[in-house]
Design a protein around this nucleic acid. Sequence first.
DNA 1: TAAAAAGTGGTCCAAATGGTCAAAAATTTA
DNA 2: TAAATTTTTGACCATTTGGACCACTTTTTA
Lengths: 186, 186
Amino acid sequence: MSGSQPKTLSRIQREKRSAIKQAALDVFSIYGLRGATLDKIAQAAGLTKPNILYYYASKDDIYFDLLNGLLDDWVAPLRKILKTGDPLHEILNYMRAKLAMSREKPRESKLFATEILHGAPLTQDVLSTSLKEILDEKVAIIEFWIAEGRLAPVNGYHLFFSIWSMTQHYADFDVQVKALLQGAQA
Amino acid sequence: MSGSQPKTLSRIQREKRSAIKQAALDVFSIYGLRGATLDKIAQAAGLTKPNILYYYASKDDIYFDLLNGLLDDWVAPLRKILKTGDPLHEILNYMRAKLAMSREKPRESKLFATEILHGAPLTQDVLSTSLKEILDEKVAIIEFWIAEGRLAPVNGYHLFFSIWSMTQHYADFDVQVKALLQGAQA
DNA sequence: TAAAAAGTGGTCCAAATGGTCAAAAATTTA
DNA sequence: TAAATTTTTGACCATTTGGACCACTTTTTA
């Protein structure tokens, strides 16, 4: 983690750090930052605790690294919304991408949700800078479509909030969804 | 807390237990079950740690008591949906009630969200029994309205999931909402 | 293949934390 | 007001946990 590390990580470094992140994702998404222990992560990764601390300076450091990678994935589908596309197609496409993410990456969604829920201690500044920047841009596209009469008037920000909440709900609250759909046709 | 206690709590008992629950709500909703400490709760309640443990057997016990009361509040608006009412009015009313709850009781919403997010260790059985029971009942009302042609066809379960997710989003992810709405008209 | 570098893990430590306990203080009851 | 009961708290304990240390092993490099 020190500044003097070479930019190119060795094979071992890449593998081990990846294994640690995978294990940490499992553990953090279930227990949260405080509830997760280095021992649990170490066990899940098949490594010893000191060995984990050889690759990461601290538990918080793992969490931070994990969360940073997540944000990129989370924003990726948003970037694909194009002003030149058809409004309905672009929006539906985005919704499908978000829903697919919830289905395929529930742990990531939960980890992110936990972070925000607890006040986003590590990501607050990212939210209010780079995420806000790209959201503003996409909301402008929505407003452009509305101005052109190609989309019914709607508040762009709250449109995105709605999409996020509805799609992520199925990953974040899967326990509840499953409990309530028990025996019902989905 | 033992079974031999009289049903009627003394004034002091009621006041202290209430103060503890208030403080615990503050602390648990921010830090989660694991992240919250008895010391933090004690400080927030203006009591000493042993004194807290005089009224509650354990930290988990406080959490459990708190969560139980919450579930009732959470379900209350759902109970008010009447088969005999006008579909649109009943549903809009419910949405408004849920949205009001998010605005007025964000801590409660967050606490509940954290619980579910972490797998609902304490509430799983309540979810799949009493909550499921009342939801099934209300979904039947939705289906009745649809059958009568008074409501467009929609899956009742997912309709409720959508309402829950969208309304609770503003409480649970308030940090994100605020960060992104900064400088924008809500 | 020898030296240097990278990687590993057993052991230990200090701080945090949930919880106990007995004695003191306050309150209620007789 | 004296005895009984309830409430409060300071001191203490056991466990967990993040992290440091250092000797040892493996891998890479010259």
